[in-house]
């Protein structure tokens, strides 16, 4: 199935140079497992960072030339809508759960899904083609190592979680062989722009690192919870009762 990976304008936090976001490199890895020739799509200026995606497994890269300050969403939506109308329409659009370099709200895939009328699934860690043609089986990451396996009809948009398999190794020759096409942002799908509507009191300034809260240690054992020299059977009963009373595990009938 034809797959597109959306690439954002990530920067190295120290040097400020363009680079490929790790999450998007993982998305390329997932796409390469599904599709022989996955293509990348980037709307922005410059190709230094995103061209590394070719070395990680993309067959080609489409770049919509936009000034860095422009909202990439209408141009992306227009490009994908046009591609879906033509032959060899993309069936799957992959992206990271939050793009880097811009506003970083993680809303682009959701707005794109709304504009194009596609279903969206978040936090994929594994993807494979379904048994029925035109379906996709997505494993979503959940808390505590659980996975939710969802079968979805294509075409669809899927965002990738950081617990997905690590990206494929970078190959310089593959990056040189990859084909980069530049496009003009011809067609833009109009969207109500919420960014412009955001609060007038908004103030942008250099980032200041704020420490996270210290993790406090939990409860200490008081008198009733200290048992000196109980019989092993009694100790085992105390431990299991404590586990069940605090809802850690249930070892009863289930």
């Amino acid at each position: 199935m034809k797959t597109i990976v959306l690439l954002s304008d990530a920067r190295n936090p120290v040097s400020g140079r363009q680079q490929l976001s790790r999450l998007e490199a993982q998305a390329i890895g997932l796409a390469a497992g599904l599709c022989e020739k996955p293509r990348g799509l980037h709307a922005g200026s410059g190709e230094d960072g995103v061209s590394a995606g070719l070395g990680h497994g993309l067959a080609g890269l489409d770049i919509i030339d936009l000034p860095a300050t422009d909202d990439p969403l209408p141009a992306l939506a227009g490009f994908i809508a046009k591609a879906m109308g033509g032959a060899g329409a993309p069936e799957l659009i992959l992206c990271g759960r939050r793009g880097e370099g811009g506003e970083e709200t993680g809303l682009v895939p959701y707005r794109l899904a709304e504009t194009l009328g596609l279903p969206i699934l978040a936090d994929a860690v594994a993807i494979r083609a379904g048994e029925i043609a035109g379906t996709l089986v997505v494993d979503q990451a959940m808390a505590k190592g659980a996975r939710r396996r969802v079968t979805i009809k294509l075409p669809a948009i899927v965002t990738v979680h950081s617990l997905a398999p690590p990206p494929m190794p970078f190959a310089f020759g593959r990056m040189r062989r990859g084909e980069i096409r530049h496009h003009e942002p011809l067609e833009r799908l109009g969207l109500p722009d919420t960014a412009a509507r955001s609060d007038a009191s908004a103030e942008e300034r250099p980032h200041r690192a704020r420490p996270k809260l210290m993790r406090q240690s939990g409860t200490a054992s008081g008198g009733p919870n200290l048992h000196v020299g109980p019989e092993p059977d009694e100790a085992a009963r105390l431990i299991l009762d404590y586990l069940e009373a605090n809802g850690i595990r249930r070892y009863g009938s289930s």
Partner: peptide, 15 residues
């Protein structure tokens, strides 16, 4: 909140 790769931040009244 932070934005632009953690180089800038934006402050506003809680939305």
């Amino acid at each position: 909140r932070a934005l632009r790769n953690g180089t800038r931040e934006v402050a506003l009244a809680p939305p």
